[in-house]
């Protein structure tokens, strides 16, 4: 199994490599665009995204409200801009945390005693063979919808996949010649894990994480659309789509404009993730969240 050496020194070269290819460049631009939209939301948004103005509800697009207003007179454009913040925060926090937990569990399974490994593999397999959405909905039923539940659900459903990946990588490394050599020279477990295993398993994990970000964005929007994700009035693309759906016949603008950032961000992150994988390691087996 090939491993990715992801030293920081290669990062600028990697970005240049991505930017040379039109698909990679498109992904890079879209992702950077949405990231800055999320970071600078308060400066970009023309209105307060939760300020209600019932007199101006269901406004079509106009110079004052470029994307119109919703059923409570809130400015749709401002809600979309702040929605980027919601979507990206949830996506980055949950995949980041899931990556850390997956890394830990995977290394424990890979390095731990045989019995523990077998048990963990069974649990990982059980979770991975669940239809993810079913499990997510069950958890939401118990905990009640909300941002924290959403992050928790994403953690639960994605950790097993990452842990499996890390375990497989760890096992193949454990039996590789250079680790054997280190061990015969009397290197400690900790040294082997920190110096040799960790740097080699982080690369593939980063690729898988980046490929899962669009899936999480989709899931957040989908669950929020079903009123099972982010609670109103917090702006989320899914909430806006739901509000638009209920008024589809007389105010179609909301659905049209709220779908665009969702489509563009998932496409952007997918393009970037694909090209990142191709650039770093074309052979790695990706078993994504779906």
């Amino acid at each position: 199994m090939s491993c990715v050496d992801e030293s920081p020194a290669r990062a600028p070269g990697l970005i240049r490599k991505l930017a040379r290819d039109p698909v990679g460049l498109a992904g890079l631009i879209l992702v950077l665009g949405f990231l800055s939209m999320a970071v600078f939301a308060p400066y970009l948004a023309p209105y307060d995204p939760i300020k209600i103005d019932v007199l101006n509800k269901f406004q079509p697009p106009s110079p004052a409200h470029p994307a119109g207003t919703d059923q409570l007179g809130r400015d749709t454009l401002s809600r979309i801009i702040f929605g980027a913040r919601t979507a990206l925060t949830i996506a980055l926090v949950s995949t980041g945390l899931a990556g850390v937990f997956g890394l830990l569990l995977g290394m424990i399974a890979g390095f731990g005693p045989r019995l523990l490994d077998n048990f963990l593999v069974l649990v990982f397999d059980a979770f991975s063979s669940l239809p993810m959405i079913m499990f997510a909905l069950a958890v939401i039923t118990v905990l009640g919808p909300g941002t924290n539940t959403l992050i928790f659900v994403i953690l639960i459903v994605s950790i097993p996949g990452y842990a499996r990946l890390i375990r497989a990588q760890t096992l193949s490394l454990k039996n590789s010649d250079f680790i054997m050599a280190e061990r015969t020279m009397g290197a400690s477990h900790i040294r082997i894990i920190l110096w040799h295993v960790l740097p080699n398993v982080v690369g593939p994990l980063v690729i898988v994480l980046s490929m899962d970000i669009p899936v999480v964005i989709m899931l957040e929007a989908g669950l929020s659309y079903l009123n099972l994700g982010v609670r109103p009035p917090t702006p989320s693309w899914g909430n806006i789509l739901y509000d638009g759906y209920t008024s589809l016949r007389f105010a179609p603008t909301m659905v049209i404009v709220a779908g665009i950032p969702l489509v563009l961000s998932t496409i952007g992150f997918t393009f970037l993730g694909e090209r990142l994988r191709d650039a770093l390691d074309p052979k790695i087996q990706i078993r994504g969240l779906r």
Binding site: L241, L248, V255, G259, T270
Partner: peptide, 16 residues
């Protein structure tokens, strides 16, 4: 890749 990336319920809403 784009077809894989786009959420199906957005396609559903647009086609609706």
């Amino acid at each position: 890749v784009s077809m894989i990336a786009v959420p199906s319920f957005v396609i559903a809403l647009y086609s609706l």
